[in-house]
Write a protein that binds this DNA or RNA. Structure first.
Lengths: 249, 249
DNA sequence: CGCTGAATTGACGGCTCTCAATGTCGGTGG
DNA sequence: CCACCGACATTGAGAGCCGTCAATTCAGCG
């Protein structure tokens, strides 16, 4: 049994075998296109970027050898890793054609990649806007991951409420007052928090005048502060932090 | 401005307008198929399941009114919410055709849905196995969410190592010994833990004889225990918990 | 009116973060 | 060859957030 180091390069690529054969052959049976694909193989040294957040998403990739780190940069400049990709793994699909990258990808070592430009897939794989919808879903998943990994209870609750408000707003409803259709239990389960923490946090937000809560009824009184809490705050607190909260008692 | 309650029913459905018009019309321009689609509109009362994990995934859905909760059931029987869906949202795409549902979906209130059977999309939206790949990616995202929301540091590290081992194994490498291509910083960033916590946890695992660590080199000595730690454990501990750990000092 | 389930509130303990110092490895220059 | 340096990793001490347990309140309902 060989020891995994992910760093050697196969000239006879077989990383796609577990998937049922070379992905390039599956997606691109046009010989001319396959030629393009072969030219699209590239090798990067450690620490180089495959793509960065915000760039145009014109392709996705398969790792031939080496390894890849996918990550986001949070508002405070810290990075949030979304996943690691080993030989045979597909990455870059979270942003489909005509979109901008919603994450960055960089090499962890010398890495060989197979590049699949979206434009060459147009005939066989154009899933109307289905792929766009799945990308939206992944966007959400990434946001959730980011919340769970980087935000404290205050940040998660604030983000959750702000997200709900935005989604209602985009549908023509009020962004300030709405009814929660889910229980505290569900919210806690979603945000990785105990029910009691959800309840306590909502109460504290109310005491600070950020919002008004009564059972399932929510009214957001101070969107700006709510959004400030939702952002990752380190020392920028003193807005509505736990230390205070008794100034209205 | 109307107050959002997500509970009223639009007979003239317009929830897809933000997306550029009725999704059914976009995907199914065959009148006969559109007829099928209309028949597929359904109303569910609060607490009813749209689908359950493990069922055949033969369709996805759009929320017309009401709201949906998507969730997983963890090994210890608790549920982990993955997301909430409001009118206009698409859900059920995380499992593509010919697959089994990898999550469950239930209504939070009386809810009206539009159902899109995969079989009717075959002509226009059959993205070869692209959708399957995106579903795999979502599967991973869900696993990450589940880790971040439900597992402590031990469980996350153990899950992380077990996942790496399995992925190397499936590629023909040793599942017991491998080199980490990512730094402690990256691991912590991925698992939502501080670097120090990652380091301390690895050291403790080594002290318990579960694995051998030296910088980037990892050798798993006791896969069973590692997997036991990776599973959510409440009182089933005493394997390698923090209380002990000094028995080899 | 009493029951049931959801929600709130309080006390306590533990896990993990932060801050800080030390140790280790690889590279660089004298 | 060796000293130095920077990046990465380990280890320790203290504090704080949040989960757990438990009691109470409240809304809905027969």
């Amino acid at each position: 049994m060989k020891i995994a180091s992910t760093s050697h390069i196969d000239h006879h690529c077989n990383v796609c075998e577990p998937r049922g054969g070379c992905l390039g052959m599956q997606l691109l049976d046009d010989p001319g296109v396959s030629k393009h694909l072969k030219q699209a193989k590239r090798i990067s040294r450690k620490g180089e970027h495959v793509f960065r957040e915000g760039e145009d998403a014109d392709a996705f990739y398969v790792v031939r050898s080496g390894s890849i780190k996918s990550y986001l940069v949070t508002e405070d400049g810290e990075e949030q890793v979304l996943g690691f990709y080993l030989p045979g793994d597909v990455f870059g699909l979270d942003s489909t054609e005509l979109q901008q990258r919603m994450s960055s990808a960089t090499t962890l070592e010398t890495t060989s990649l197979c590049r699949f430009p979206h434009v060459y897939l147009a005939d066989k794989a154009q899933g109307s806007n289905l792929l766009r919808i799945t990308a939206e879903q992944m966007q959400r998943d990434h946001n959730l991951v980011l919340m769970l990994a980087r935000k404290d209870a205050d940040g998660r609750i604030a983000s959750f409420l702000d997200d709900l408000a935005c989604r209602y707003w985009s549908r023509g409803y009020s962004a300030s007052a709405f009814l929660l259709s889910m229980s505290r239990q569900d919210i806690g389960c979603y945000l990785g928090l105990a029910v009691e923490t959800v309840s306590r946090t909502l109460t504290r937000f109310q005491e600070c005048g950020v919002l008004q809560v009564n059972r399932r009824e929510v009214e957001i009184l101070d969107h700006d502060t709510l959004r400030k809490i939702a952002g990752i705050r380190l020392d920028s607190a003193s807005d509505c932090s736990k230390a205070s909260g008794l100034n209205s008692a």
